[in-house]
């Protein structure tokens, strides 16, 4: 049952992505594609949620302990935030920038081996859930911030270069994009901080030290530092707009780098990353 719900949600996410891309390519102001996109994404999200609860129930712990589950949950978090932002801001074309990213994560999850190794007893702890949920929500917020930051850069390019064709009229205003980016970073940063703190407590419980300076942990600290700088620079020096957008993209690329590189290497005591 788990596999089927996953496949169904993948199929719906795929449809959502196709509709979002059609929306992007259509110059006509047809409202049908955004609606179809949102509908498919919501149905996919429903099946996806069922899948996560089912596997978690079967495993007896939060189901994010291997790369397959982790990337799938990452995608789930992104969709969750996407729905919230879509409801809150009703921003045009955001789906076209976000659903491909989320679908890509789902697809990566799909091709990864579905190993269901039992979790080593030393890691069985309530901190597992706290750490992973906060880490992924934070990463999802940063991913969205990067997506919205990219939208900002595209829109700013139109305004600066004075060629107001293409997506100019359909993309939201610079102010809104900058504000969403800012909100996402300010939301993601404390979530990420909680993830790091809970992770180190968990590490202390499991191995007896808060930090073991393994690559994954260093990457996490680097990421934390980058987003800390993004926030600080914005609040103190007015680094808004283009710089904030570029920095949040850079921050997200570090996260992806950590994910990809370290997941492939599979070294260290960190379970899957």
């Amino acid at each position: 049952m788990g596999a089927i719900t996953f496949d169904i949600s993948l199929a719906f996410y795929f449809c959502a992505m196709i509709f979002s891309l059609l929306d992007l390519s259509k110059s006509t102001k047809t409202k049908i594609f955004p609606k179809l996109m949102l509908l498919s994404a919501l149905v996919g999200f429903g099946f996806h949620t069922v899948y996560i609860f089912y596997t978690g129930f079967m495993a007896g712990h939060v189901p994010f302990v291997n790369p397959r589950e982790a990337t799938s949950f990452f995608a789930w978090c992104i969709f969750l935030l996407f729905f919230i932002l879509e409801y809150r801001y009703k921003v045009g074309l955001m789906g076209s920038f976000i659903t491909p990213l989320a679908f890509l994560l789902m697809f990566i999850s799909f091709i990864l081996p579905p190993e269901m190794k039992p979790l080593s007893p030393v890691l069985r702890s309530q901190w597992l859930g706290v750490h992973t949920v906060f880490a992924f929500l934070a990463n999802a917020a940063f991913a969205m911030a990067a997506g919205v930051g990219f939208m900002y850069l595209v829109q700013e390019h139109y305004v600066k270069s004075k060629h107001l064709g293409g997506l100019f009229s359909r993309l939201p205003s610079l102010h809104v994009l900058d504000e969403i980016n800012y909100r996402l970073v300010t939301a993601g940063f404390p979530l990420f901080t909680i993830a790091i703190i809970s992770g180190s407590i968990w590490a202390d419980n499991a191995w007896g030290s808060y930090i073991s300076w393994e690559p994954r942990q260093i990457w996490a600290l680097v990421t934390w530092l980058i987003f800390g700088i993004v926030l600080h620079a914005r609040l103190q020096r007015g680094w808004r707009g283009r710089r904030a957008a570029a920095l949040s993209i850079l921050g997200f690329l570090t996260i992806i780098g950590a994910f990809a590189g370290l997941a492939l290497l599979q070294k260290g005591s960190h379970v899957f990353l």
Binding site: Q155, V159, L164, F168, S173, L174, H175, V176
Partner: peptide, 9 residues
Amino acid sequence: ELARKIFND
């Protein structure tokens, strides 16, 4: 229109 695309409101 441009002002709106910059400031929104």
